[in-house]
Design a binder for these strands. Structure first.
Lengths: 343, 343
DNA sequence: AATTAGCACTCTCGTGGTGAGAGTGCTAAA
DNA sequence: TTTAGCACTCTCACCACGAGAGTGCTAATT
């Protein structure tokens, strides 16, 4: 693979920037005029032809301007973009919003989705942090009425599960409290399997509860992503490239279908916290995403709990802003998760 | 307002049925041929012209078939549809799915959304049940690490809120337990305002917790809908009427923008549990929904907790199925909520 | 050797015309 | 009141045409 000359790099970069600005194929003249290049349109045309041979640009038809290929976007993102940072005043605004929400766990994810969507001008996805290892932390049995009992199970990492259970006969709240206390002492910090081993030693009622608990924990272990939060879908669907249904299809599926998103995340996103990956035009593996790019990140605390977050937009997206805001929000969320779980 | 003749009713009904089956304007000939009418096409044409004068049908252009107007759909739903029920085998399948999920609160809403979307072949929305009155039930303080404490607040009705709080100095889990016990005894069944009145009497740490609790409860009181669950958006967007963006816009907004959905629900949905409302073509009040119909229902237990659920589709939707499945799922959810909160 | 001016060529897009087909509205007869 | 018959209207697909935009190539220039 031959290296691009500096001028080819420049031109490739300008084509991407110009095309992102407005969704029309960009012509040699537009480039020379708008960016004050010190060469003629003919030279630019020659270079463009070369870039097309090399697979970085393409033509919708013979006599139209050029648009970047996925390979072209890739080169742009990896070699030309450099380290981008969000403007400081935006950083401050965002950090402030998170600061205000810092205590209310339930606001974090919606806020993150909203900030991502807004700043990157795309659709945003955030999955709730999920413990990499499911361990028992605390259990509470609350009598509601008659024989019905609400079981609230808190897992290490802050995940809370609720489940109803109905007793053969009514039990007093005090009896329930004692049972919870005993189970909490026995089970603190254990995994589902470890709890399973102890069940036999317990009195009848408590072992019934323990069964339920292991069941809940096993179910939690099977999940690979937590609750999913979304924002900005309607805005991004107004982009001209999504006026055709087939292109919008993949975007909507990745935003709506949990299984599809999970598949993409599993395939494309490294499990390492703080990493940011860019998936352009489906990368050949996801045909439905031909018209979309995803900027994905992972946040949280390795070994405790991690979640994913990302921006979805047309391939013609503002990669610089998207990458920087994903990274920034990811760091903020990681800090919050750290404070909550570890600090 | 003049009454429609029986034959006009028949024809209106057939136009709706035929148009729902395939999205082309329906001609007089199609009606006579497909439904074996004992009159000629000319007669049908005359009746159609009359129905158009009365505002039940319309023309896309002079020489095309007829399509129903919103008024036409209304008449169809209210007068011609009768009491529809889901086929028994579908009822059984659905009831079985809910039976299997009956103990896991967290599965109810996604399951309901999935069943609605699937059965009605539309997009589905379900809001989590929300207590009509926010009352304290139970609180648990769990020390996580150092000075950080996880506060888990259970409200009457089963809603659970989590919040972090950080102490000026580390406290032992036992101290936290005692504090929770005391607060639980004091506050059981109270509203935010009532708790606010007691705060002054408490020792420093407990009053700090109580402040947080009232704050959480006040915030819960301000919400009018719970968490929103969605399903089936991508399927319904494949319908031909949504290939134009402007029509898809309203659909996507009502599915995605919480505030928009809340406005529609507040305006259109009666607070009475078990009621089902049909909102056709935005009813003049919601221009974005011109191409959509909503079948909305409310479930839950009046005075305890209620939520909304609904199906969204093109005006050209299967009203019979949509209404019956909304009613059926609504009843199932109401039963579950009843068992959980009251039983 | 690289650049550039010039120009022919290609392709899109909007416009207008045309003919087939579908479906109506109307009139007059049953 | 219904219906047969027919003229009329409107859409849609198709084609042709010209303007405009942009390229690719060649030959001249630096």
């Amino acid at each position: 693979m031959e290296e691009l000359t500096p001028r080819q790099q420049t031109i490739l970069g300008l084509v991407v920037r110009e095309y992102v600005k407005s969704p029309n194929p960009v012509s040699s003249r537009a480039l020379v005029e708008n960016y004050g290049l010190q060469v003629s349109t003919a030279t630019v045309r020659n270079e463009m032809a070369r870039l097309e041979e090399l697979g970085y640009l393409t033509h919708p038809h013979t006599s139209a301007g050029r648009i970047p290929t996925p390979k072209g976007y890739h080169h742009f993102v990896e070699r030309l973009l450099g380290e981008v940072e969000l403007p400081v005043h935006e950083q401050r605004t965002i950090a402030h919003q998170f600061y205000q929400a810092r205590q209310d766990f339930s606001q974090w994810m919606p806020l993150a989705a909203s900030v991502l969507a807004h700043t990157a001008q795309g659709a945003a996805l955030v999955t709730a942090p999920l413990a990499t290892e499911v361990r028992y932390k605390h259990l509470q049995l609350i009598s509601t009425q008659g024989r019905a009992v609400l079981l609230v199970l808190v897992l290490r990492g802050g995940m809370v599960k609720q489940q109803m259970l109905s007793l053969p006969e009514p039990l007093d709240q005090q009896v329930l409290d004692e049972a919870s206390d005993r189970l909490n002492q026995h089970f603190n910090g254990l995994t589902a399997d470890e709890i399973g081993g102890h069940v036999a030693d317990l009195p009848a009622f408590e072992s019934q509860v323990a069964d339920l608990v292991t069941d809940l924990m096993r179910r939690a272990e099977r999940h690979t992503t937590g609750e999913i939060y979304r924002d900005g879908l309607s805005r991004v669907l107004q982009q001209p490239e999504f006026s055709e249904q087939e292109h919008a299809q993949g975007l909507i599926r990745v935003m709506e279908e949990r299984s599809f998103l999970e598949a993409v995340l599993a395939d494309a996103l490294s499990p390492e916290v703080g990493s940011v990956q860019v998936l352009i035009g489906g990368e050949g593996r996801w045909d439905e995403l031909r018209a979309c790019s995803l900027v994905l990140g992972r946040y949280g605390v390795s070994g405790f709990a991690t979640g994913a977050l990302g921006v979805v937009g047309p391939t013609r997206m503002l990669y610089g802003r998207a990458i920087s805001v994903v990274r920034f929000v990811s760091d903020l969320l990681s800090d919050l998760v750290y404070d909550m779980y570890v600090g």
